[in-house]
Write a protein that binds this DNA or RNA. Structure first.
Lengths: 176, 176
DNA sequence: TTCATATGAATGAATG
DNA sequence: CATTCATTCATATGAA
């Protein structure tokens, strides 16, 4: 991924491959000042969870007063903050299980409680491999519904007729 | 920690698989190998943005050589890559409307654009306008919304003096 | 130094 | 295609 952007650090191959490209370079990531964090937190506590692009811009502009900041920082901040609050809450709710005997949704959390942990996992799709020849003329009916993960890796089915031995990198795009 | 409850695979180690075939990785979500990513990126850079079902199939088949992959992974990859490139351009372009910071203290802003592992392969044409003319050409469709380039002329004009006093806290949220 | 935690960043997967 | 969620990766920081 050539996400050449400020604050990008090599992501591929954690180790291995001896010298990674820019290990030396200081890939600094945004380091919010306390003022910035405070404002962001205030906004969050005020109810703002997912600022629109427009809001992000405004916030970023305002916060740039306190120090270097980019829009994406604001974006990520809210993403992370929301996600982590949720995950924290989830962990807590799990902690006080048993208290609720009812199987109805938890009564505690007022809202935005996502029950990611499904009590019963229904087996719906029998399809194990989407080789479906869905015909998407042009509507956007194309959707991949695969509720199962981890199908034994044995299901590979390297398409027939392809006796490729590591296709030449230069010719990779030719098969289209 | 996380007291394994989600029944999700606890990835043992973080490795981007320098070789081929995602050895030993537990399941969960698709974890593209570097080769897979490279091919996908090449395709993307070649102009492919929204591969047809047929193309997805082909690509998936080819990439399966490098490791486990499903059609939907390819589908999502292109969806995400395209969306994020756009989103990134949007977010980033906004924030570089550099507030006039004559900023003498530090000659910072190292502008750390690092083309990590790419030797000198492509220059990556920074497409600022639709040049594509492929099958699935995707011009930059103006959306119903007004240009998100509403530059917020009121910016802030960081009163560059030296030490700026913080704006009243009670007014912070007013700009939204 | 090593380990644990907080958090910025990234991205796969969905959904509308 | 835009948005959002969930999970993971990476790094900075502080405790042991």
């Amino acid at each position: 991924m050539d996400e050449g952007m400020s604050g990008f650090c090599i992501k591929a191959s954690s180790f291995r491959d001896g010298g990674n490209g820019n290990s030396g370079t200081k890939c600094g990531r945004w380091n919010p000042t306390t003022e910035q964090v405070k404002v962001l937190t205030d906004l969050f506590r005020s109810g703002l969870r997912t600022p629109s692009t427009d809001q992000i811009q405004k916030i970023s502009s305002q916060l740039s007063f306190y120090g270097k900041i980019e829009s994406k920082n604001v974006f990520y901040w809210f993403q992370n903050h929301k996600a982590r609050e949720r995950q924290k809450r989830r962990k807590v709710s799990i902690d006080d299980k048993d208290i609720i005997r009812r199987d109805l949704e938890n009564i505690s959390s007022p809202k935005q409680i996502n029950q990611v942990s499904e009590p019963a996992r229904v087996i719906e799709t029998l399809q194990l491999f989407p080789i479906n020849s869905f015909n998407e003329s042009e509507g956007e009916k194309l959707r991949f519904h695969a509720n199962e993960y981890c199908k034994e890796a044995s299901a590979f089915t390297c398409t027939v007729g392809t006796e490729m031995d590591l296709p030449p990198l230069d010719l990779r795009l030719s098969f289209l």
